[in-house]
Every structure is written in structure tokens, then in C-alpha cells.
């Protein structure tokens, strides 16, 4: 059986969907955070498979950018979560709703 790019793309789409659904249904901020990471990496997988399929280095380069941005995002996001935890002894997303119209 030959593994075509379609397999990778399908896998990436599945991972992305799992991440997206997880983000919407889970209430623990840490888990939501991991779901975001899952989505990011699903997209990375797409980039790499297209880079391979189209023989274009551009896709692989983009992945590095994504990784850097994701690292920055983790740093900020975890800091926020820690700050929230110190204040309210819990990190449930739905409890943090002060900023509303």
C-alpha cells in the first residue's frame, strides 16, 4: 500500500477537528490549551505534506514560523492561566466572564 499525501491530509484534518471540538466542549483551560496546540500541529502537518507533495520548501519554512509563534503563545497563555489560578483557585473557562457587554 502506498502512503499518498491524501493520508497525511486526512490525518491532519482529523486532528484539527478533534482539536476544534475539544476547544469547544472542554471547560478546563489547560485542556483547551492543549487542543489549540493540537490544531496548530495539525496545520503544521498539512504544510509539511504539501511541501513534500509539491516539492516546495516554502511549506516547511512556514512550519518553523508556526513553531516560534506557538512557543510565544504558550509562554503568554500559561502565564495567564497561572495568574487566573492564583486569583480564583480554578481554571474553568466559563467562570472567567467579567468582560462582557
Amino acid at each position: 500500500m502506498e502512503i499518498t499525501p491524501a493520508y497525511y491530509l486526512t490525518l491532519a484534518a482529523l486532528l484539527f477537528t478533534i482539536g476544534a471540538v475539544g476547544l469547544l466542549v472542554r471547560r478546563n483551560t489547560l485542556v483547551m490549551f492543549m487542543c489549540v496546540e493540537l490544531m496548530l500541529n495539525a496545520v503544521n502537518l498539512t504544510f509539511v505534506s504539501f511541501a513534500r507533495a509539491l516539492d516546495d520548501i516554502g511549506g516547511q519554512v512556514i512550519v518553523f514560523f508556526t513553531l516560534v509563534v506557538a512557543a510565544a503563545e504558550v509562554a503568554v497563555g500559561l502565564a495567564i492561566i497561572v495568574a487566573i489560578f492564583r486569583r480564583r483557585q480554578g481554571v474553568t473557562a466559563d467562570d472567567v466572564n467579567l468582560l462582557k457587554g
Binding site: 476547544l23 469547544l24 471547560r27 483547551m32 473557562a93 466559563d94 472567567v96 466572564n97 467579567l98 468582560l99 462582557k100 457587554g101
Partner: peptide, 9 residues
């Protein structure tokens, strides 16, 4: 304003 519920999800 009802759209801006404050709920992240």
C-alpha cells in the same frame, strides 16, 4: 451586547 457574553468558548 448579547453577543459579547464574556464566555471564551
Amino acid at each position: 451586547r448579547r453577543l459579547q457574553s464574556g464566555l471564551m468558548r
